[in-house]
Structure formats: structure tokens, C-alpha cells
């Protein structure tokens, strides 16, 4: 078995904010009817968390659930547990219309840490990042440059961003350039 590493293998950049590769994360895409009680029960049983409301992201320790679209959730867990959780979900949901896939190796996650995280992202995304609109516990799927990303504020000065691994190196480079020292417009 080959040794799994994340896309930038823990790289870190210190500029106006700190950009770091968040390392290997377990991520599971779960699609299905989010209003069904069977699916809610399966998610509760596997993760210990309830299905979040529209655009909400909930975390308890390393386990989390993000609302991605009206029929899709992204479940976060420890990298090693993803396969097990997919198996558990599949077993509970067999018979209903659903899809559970371990996408851990197809995603990359980066952490931004510092006072200007909103401004770094605002340089390349059309999303409204003002504190009045983007709340913590809200996941925003949008684009960064020309690639699709999703991000949420885990604290006032901390932003987590997930993207496809295939564009992970590009997104990391992009974030480092956008986070160059003394380059923030200071609008927020």
C-alpha cells in the first residue's frame, strides 16, 4: 500500500495571513433525499450529528457535515475512517435511493489563518464575504479564480477551504500570491 499524502504535503506560507495545507482529511459525498428520516437516522448513527440546514456546516471534533446542495452532504471525518463510514452508511441505506462515496483522495483542504482571511478570498471570488452576509457555520460554494471551491469560517480569523485535488496545487499557489505581505485592501 502506497503512503498517502495530501496535495501539498503539509506546505505552509506566511504572508498577510498564514496559508497551510490542512493535510489528509476524510471526506464522504452523500447524495440522497435529505428530508427522508431514514437518511437522517443513518447520518446520525454514523457521525453523531444531525443533518445541517441550508448552507450550514456543523462540526464536532474532527467529524463534520456540510450542506452542499438540496440533495448532497459532505461528511468530514478522520482520513482512516472514511472507508468504514462509507460502509456503515451503505449498509444502513441499502434499499433507498442514495450515493455514498469516499472522496478523500479527490479533495484538498487548505486553512487560512489571520485577520485578513476574508480579503484574501475576496480577491478571486464573487461571493459576498462581508461579515454581515457570510456567517461562521455557513459553507459557501463558489469559485476562486476559475475553479470551484467551498469555504467556511471556523473562527473569525480562520477560514477552511476545500477544492478538487486536481486543482489543489494551483489553489495553494493562488492563495499564497493573494496572501502576499501588505497586499490586502482592508475593506472588511
Amino acid at each position: 500500500m502506497s503512503n498517502a499524502i495530501s496535495v501539498k504535503n503539509g506546505a505552509e506560507f506566511n504572508g498577510a495571513v498564514r496559508v497551510s495545507d490542512a493535510g489528509l482529511k476524510g471526506m464522504i459525498t452523500l447524495r440522497g433525499d435529505l428530508s427522508s428520516t431514514k437518511l437522517a437516522a443513518a447520518v446520525q448513527e454514523t457521525t453523531g450529528l444531525a443533518i445541517p440546514s441550508r448552507r450550514e456546516i456543523v462540526f464536532k471534533g474532527e467529524t463534520g457535515i456540510a450542506w452542499m446542495s438540496p440533495d448532497e452532504l459532505l461528511i468530514f471525518c478522520a482520513y482512516e475512517q472514511a472507508e468504514m463510514q462509507v460502509a456503515a452508511l451503505t449498509e444502513t441505506l441499502t434499499g433507498s435511493h442514495f450515493l455514498a462515496v469516499n472522496v478523500s483522495d479527490a479533495r484538498a483542504q487548505f486553512s487560512l489563518h489571520g485577520a485578513g482571511v476574508r480579503e484574501v478570498i475576496a480577491k478571486g471570488s464573487p461571493a459576498n464575504l462581508s461579515p454581515a452576509v457570510l456567517n461562521p457555520h455557513e459553507i459557501r460554494r463558489t469559485r476562486l479564480g476559475q475553479v470551484a471551491v467551498a469555504f467556511w469560517l471556523s473562527a473569525d480569523d480562520r477560514l477552511e477551504l476545500v477544492c478538487f485535488r486536481s486543482v489543489g496545487a494551483f489553489v495553494y499557489d493562488w492563495l499564497c500570491i493573494a496572501a502576499a505581505k501588505d497586499s490586502l485592501p482592508e475593506v472588511y
Partner: peptide
């Protein structure tokens, strides 16, 4: 209307 986001044309 599906996710409630004010989406820019480029999205």
C-alpha cells in the same frame, strides 16, 4: 432558489 445564495453571473 435552491441554495439561497446571491450568485454573481460568473458563478
Amino acid at each position: 432558489p435552491c441554495c439561497g445564495v446571491d450568485a454573481d453571473e460568473t458563478e
